[in-house]
């Protein structure tokens, strides 16, 4: 009984993290049809930026500064890092590549991944960064006998806000409508006078910022070290493919499914933990080849 309860809590916390990581990936794919292998690197950049700035915030000026400032810092770091990196990469490189084969775009982002991995090493070195203060300061609650970190609970709220915000933006605003038009049929949208180039820039920067935000919010709970980004890519891919590429609600459903499955495996069958994610992915795809919320494309003759 206690275990089922723990599975639900652990699974939800993990799912909220997965959703944060996968949201940016699915937004970029949905609009631009780019499966972004470098997404993990944006996550890592956000984590590094946040960890180093929070470290500076607490160490540089002494403990006199209030803790809430560090939470602000996490978000600001993510926004700045995502904005700068996103703009530079989109304007400087991807813009020149639009219209190329979808697979070629995957490989371009793979090259980006290799470059960014070493680039981060040049900026931040290889020593792990720890920015534990925001995580440790929040304390913990006891939920039905299980001690849970408040920071993790707050993460659930954040991912609800992010998911809800994205949905409302896409469904309820004018820009969102235009974006949906681009998603539905790029050529027709262009013919209707939509500035597709601008929409692409907007989407890509939004995607990188979401990736960086996920990294920045994760940073306090972990030790930020090289190779961080590579580890999350496959995870994020799995979530997005399970949910259906390009769908926000799909990413949420995929995250929840993978998160709960994994938590159940950890509690009941630790031996299977390694396979759970790929197992879920294969099963879902075997039944629904386009993912839970994916759209079937019309075959063109």
């Amino acid at each position: 009984m206690n275990s089922i309860y723990a599975v639900l809590i652990d699974g939800t916390i993990y799912a909220s993290w997965l959703f944060l990581v996968a949201a940016g990936l699915t937004v970029i794919y949905g609009v631009m049809r780019i499966l972004n292998m470098a997404h993990g690197s944006f996550y890592a950049i956000g984590a590094y930026a946040a960890a180093s700035m929070v470290g500076w915030y607490f160490n540089g000026e002494g403990a006199a500064l209030p803790v809430w400032g560090s939470y602000l810092m996490l978000v600001v770091c993510a926004l700045v890092a995502g904005l700068v990196v996103g703009l530079v990469i989109e304007r400087g490189l991807l813009r020149l590549m639009y219209g190329r084969d979808e697979i070629l775009m995957v490989i371009i982002t793979y090259a980006l991944l290799l470059i960014l991995e070493d680039g981060m090493k040049m900026v931040w070195g290889v020593d792990p960064y720890m920015a534990f203060q925001p995580y440790a300061e929040m304390g913990r609650s006891v939920l039905g006998g299980l001690k849970v970190s408040n920071y993790d609970l707050a993460l659930i709220a954040v991912s609800l806000v992010v998911g809800g915000g994205l949905w409302a933006w896409l469904e309820r605003t004018n820009t969102g409508k235009v974006l949906r038009a681009v998603i539905h049929d790029r050529e027709v949208a262009m013919a209707m006078g939509v500035n597709v180039g601008l929409m692409f820039t907007l989407t890509f920067v939004l995607g990188t910022t979401l990736g960086a935000l996920a990294g920045a919010l994760t940073a306090p709970a972990i030790s930020v070290a090289p190779g961080l980004g590579v580890e999350v890519i496959v995870l994020a891919f799995a979530v997005v493919v399970v949910g259906g590429l390009g769908s926000i609600e799909g990413a949420a459903a995929g995250a929840l499914l993978v998160g709960l499955a994994r938590a159940a495996a950890v509690h009941y069958a630790p031996e299977l933990e390694l396979f759970v994610i790929y197992g879920v992915m294969s099963l879902v795809l075997a039944v629904r080849p386009q993912g839970l919320f994916g759209r079937t494309l019309v075959r063109k003759i």
Partner: peptide
């Protein structure tokens, strides 16, 4: 990097 579920399973 994330050990939430493992920590719960051990704590129990």
């Amino acid at each position: 990097g994330q050990y939430g579920a493992e920590i719960s399973a051990v704590s129990v």
